[in-house]
């Protein structure tokens, strides 16, 4: 139905922790083609949980997840989703586990079935597009916080996802790296972007619409922020 036209469509999602604590109560979310949405909400409101539900990392108690017109039920469906939707984790250390940067960036493409030469080529081009080719042979866990963040974004972009989900990408980054990250994400040709951030710099620069997760429900945020963000996008 309408799932065919939207990138991501969540319907009546319910989720609570095994302790019984309610997190999401009948949440609905539709992300249209070209949407750039900021997802806000207090700590522990369930934003990260929502991201994990979209990618099938955790399963909701009830409700349906539809991505690119495909209603996802089992692990096989979500495997497909994970090729199309890239998630950048809050902590880069969760994402970077390989001994060298290049291996980490090539990990996704290899899993997509690319030959190792092609995967390395793809990884190299991703690194250079982010301007971090010099980190190629470094050890990820010895990088600085900003470098780790850029590499973790590279590991996702190298899979060429259609939709990007970013979970607090600017936590602990300085002004300079934040701006660089904004540039990188803006230049990436994605069909949709969903961003969790408390940082208005990146939210204003990248998104056109804000949603708030509050009281286990999603609400549209007031328009003042909206118009502002539109200005900053058109101004760039």
């Amino acid at each position: 139905m309408d799932g065919n036209t939207s990138l991501i469509h969540l319907e009546n999602i319910n989720f609570s922790y095994s302790s019984g604590q309610l997190v999401l109560d009948d949440v609905n979310l539709t992300m249209e083609e070209g949407a750039r949405i900021a997802l806000k909400g207090g700590n522990g409101a369930g934003k990260t949980t929502l991201f994990h539900i979209i990618l099938g990392l955790i399963r909701p108690l009830s409700g349906s997840v539809t991505v690119m017109g495909r209603t996802c039920v089992g692990e096989e469906d979500f495997k497909q989703v994970r090729r199309q939707v890239g998630l950048v984790f809050q902590d880069p250390d969760d994402q970077l586990f390989c001994p060298t940067v290049i291996e980490d960036v090539a990990f996704g493409p290899l899993n997509m079935g690319l030959k190792s030469s092609e995967a390395i080529e793809r990884a190299d081009s991703t690194l250079s597009s982010l301007g971090i080719s010099h980190l190629r042979d470094r050890v990820p866990y010895r990088l600085s916080g900003g470098e780790k963040r850029l590499v973790s974004v590279a590991t996702v972009l190298s899979m060429k996802p259609d939709v990007l989900l970013l979970d607090e990408p600017t936590v602990g980054l300085d002004q300079w790296v934040t701006e660089r990250l904004i540039r990188v994400i803006r230049d990436y040709p994605c069909r949709g972007l969903l961003l969790i951030s408390h940082d208005s710099r990146i939210a204003d620069a990248l998104t056109t619409r804000s949603l708030v997760l509050k009281g286990h429900k999603i609400e549209e945020e007031c328009l003042a922020v909206n118009s502002q963000s539109r200005v900053s996008v058109s101004g760039s």
């Binding site: 902590d91 969760d94 994402q95 995967a119």
Partner: peptide
């Protein structure tokens, strides 16, 4: 748990590729 999830997000299906 998070590391495994992050690997799943990048299409991990149990195979480790040896690049070197």
């Amino acid at each position: 748990e998070r590391v495994y999830k992050a690997m799943l997000c990048r299409g991990f299906d149990g195979t480790f590729w040896l690049l070197h």
